[in-house]
């Protein structure tokens, strides 16, 4: 059985304009993916494709006006979306741990690092203060924080960005999670620190046999640190497969653009990389959402594309997946 099963997850931004008309942004349109124990899934896409929103929907952390309107999120077979807040709290921070985007603002500014680590441990297990403290030191050592005992009494604002990120990872590991979700864990860090932290994450995942999701806009991160990948575009997953399969045989035109376009610098920094702006989420086109940007768009593309299997566990949402001319010149 899969550790995490996400099926047809739909999240909308529902708001009203000045004339009280309801406006709906289709931010996630039927997301489906799995994560197994001991594997790292990389979710990659442009800014605004819905990567972070996927993570927030999974752990039930949406801020209004975002709301889940359909689908299932199963963790060890239990549906997180219909679960009571108390049951959910028993899982969050315990079995599912999250490493968020903004480490420095995400720590409680008025508590010392050590107290926060101890707090999260004791919220989920019956351990004593002393036990929790030694666990905290252990985890801080594991994530490579020098002088962990000393750092326990540091305030969040005294940490550098890289240090704060390590603290967040240490917090995530405090309760031996089964699933780790890391949302852009290395944005804002310099390159050497990035590599260290990702190396560390991968190491921990293998050692503790966790499942992990790494959300990033950096294809390099996916290529080097993930086992499988899911490519997101306009609130949907357009292709999933093992990292090797997807990079070697991209089946969706968007993925192939992504992989081909910038071989030397595998980054999707800009909003619109190629072929114009992403579609308006308030007003999605019928059929394939990628149509307007696709070099191969044909008449069939005005109907919703099916999920086509192009290899073992390698699927793409395109009418012509796997039949595209070998990277057109």
């Amino acid at each position: 059985m899969n550790l995490l099963q996400v099926r047809d997850l739909e999240t909308h931004f529902i708001s009203r304009d000045i004339d009280n008309r309801v406006r709906i942004a289709h931010a996630l349109n039927g997301i489906t993916f799995d994560v197994e124990e001991g594997e790292i899934l990389g979710i990659v896409g442009e800014t605004g494709a819905g990567k972070s929103l996927t993570a927030q929907s999974v752990v039930g952390l949406l801020r209004p006006p975002a709301r889940i309107v359909g689908g299932q999120v199963r963790f060890e077979g239990r549906d997180l979306l219909t679960m009571s807040e108390d049951d959910l709290n028993a899982i969050r921070g315990n079995d599912i741990a999250m490493v968020v985007q903004n480490p420095r603002t995400s720590l409680d500014p008025l508590s010392r690092i050590g107290d926060q680590l101890i707090r999260i441990r004791r919220a989920h297990s019956e351990s004593s203060e002393a036990e929790a403290r030694s666990r905290a030191v252990e985890m801080m050592t594991a994530v490579g924080i020098p002088d962990p005992e000393l750092r326990l009494s540091a305030w969040p604002h005294e940490l550098s960005g890289g240090m704060a990120q390590r603290v967040l990872i240490a917090m995530a590991l405090m309760n031996e999670p089964k699933l780790l979700i890391a949302d852009e864990p290395t944005t804002g860090l310099d390159v050497t620190v990035q590599a260290q932290i990702l190396e560390l994450l991968r190491d921990l995942v293998t050692r503790m046999n966790m499942g992990a999701i790494i959300i990033t806009h950096d294809l390099g991160v996916v290529a080097n640190f993930c086992d499988r990948m899911a490519v997101m575009f306009a609130g949907g997953i357009v292709e999933t497969g093992t990292v090797g399969d997807v990079f070697e045989n991209p089946a969706h035109p968007y993925t192939s653009n992504l992989v081909d376009a910038t071989p030397e610098r595998l980054k999707i920094g800009r909003k619109a990389v190629f072929g114009g702006a992403p579609p308006d989420l308030y007003n999605l086109p019928d059929g394939c959402h990628h149509r307007d940007r696709c070099r191969f768009a044909r008449e069939e593309c005005s109907t919703p594309p099916p999920l086509r299997e192009v290899g073992l566990k390698h699927v793409a949402r395109c009418h012509f997946a796997g039949e595209l001319p070998e990277t057109a010149q």
């Binding site: 720590l107 500014p109 917090m171």
Partner: peptide
């Protein structure tokens, strides 16, 4: 309540009372 820190505290499954105190 809508700050990163409190949202992260909720994501960490801290009890409602602890979050409130924070």
């Amino acid at each position: 309540i809508s700050s990163d820190a409190v949202r992260y505290a909720k994501a960490s499954g801290l009890p409602t009372l602890t979050v409130r105190r924070m």
